[in-house]
Amino acid sequence: MTNVNKENIYRNLLDAGCSRDFADDFIHLEDKQKKMKLLSCHRCSLLDKIHEYQKQLDCLDYLIYSTKNK
């Protein structure tokens, strides 16, 4: 892996919400399966946050709807 490629991957990981420690660990891993597991775990974590925020938005939408129609 070239330095430019490592820098691009590192930047992409940070842009994806990964911590610097996560990105450092990922860059230094050699095992492709371990890399895939790390990425999959982070993806699941982000998806859980999306679901949590969606539930919060649904609650607010209901409150807005209820308040408008009273």
Rank of each mutant, 00 (worst) to 15 (best):
R43L: 15
K37Q: 01
L47N: 06
T67R: 14
K49N: 06
D48M: 05
L14W: 01
L14T: 03
R20S: 06
L46W: 01
D61H: 11
R11F: 12
Q33G: 03
S66H: 10
E7L: 13
V4W: 11
Y65A: 09
I64P: 00
C59M: 11
C18L: 08
K70V: 14
H51S: 11
A23P: 02
N69T: 14
H28V: 07
L39Y: 00
K34P: 01
Y10F: 12
L63C: 12
N12K: 12
H28N: 12
K49C: 01
M1K: 13
I9K: 04
M36H: 08
K68W: 12
H51A: 14
Y62S: 06
Y65L: 05
K68V: 12
D25L: 05
D25S: 07
K37A: 00
G17T: 00
C18E: 00
Q56T: 03
K70N: 13
Q54A: 09
K70H: 14
C41W: 06
L63Y: 13
L14Y: 04
Y65T: 06
D15Y: 07
D25N: 05
G17C: 05
C18W: 08
E7K: 11
R20C: 00
K68G: 15
Y53E: 07
T2P: 02
I50P: 06
D25F: 04
K6N: 15
K55P: 00
C18Y: 02
H51Q: 11
S40F: 08
K49G: 03
T2A: 11
L63D: 10
A16R: 07
E7C: 09
K34I: 08
S66V: 00
E7N: 14
S45M: 02
I27C: 06
L63I: 14
K6I: 12
H51Y: 13
L57D: 06
S66Y: 09
L57Y: 07
G17R: 02
N12T: 15
K34N: 11
S45W: 02
A16Q: 11
K70T: 15
L39S: 00
L46P: 04
D25W: 03
N12I: 09
Y62V: 03
D21Q: 13
Q33P: 06
N69G: 03
H28A: 08
M1A: 14
N8G: 08
Y62F: 09
N69A: 11
S66F: 09
L14R: 09
D48Q: 05
V4Q: 13
C44R: 12
F22Q: 07
S40K: 12
L14M: 14
N5V: 11
Q56D: 02
Q54I: 08
L57N: 07
N69Y: 09
K49Y: 06
Q33E: 13
Y62M: 12
S40I: 01
N8Q: 15
I64D: 01
F22T: 01
F26W: 00
H51K: 14
S19I: 08
E30L: 04
N5L: 15
I27P: 01
A16P: 04
M1W: 07
M36V: 10
K6E: 15
A23F: 07
T67M: 11
L57S: 02
D58K: 01
R11D: 10
L39H: 00
I9H: 00
L57T: 10
S19P: 01
F22M: 00
I50M: 03
L29G: 08
K49Q: 11
K68Q: 15
H51D: 14
N3W: 09
N5S: 13
K37I: 03
K68T: 14
K6V: 06
M1Q: 13
C41E: 12
N5M: 15
K32S: 09
I64W: 02
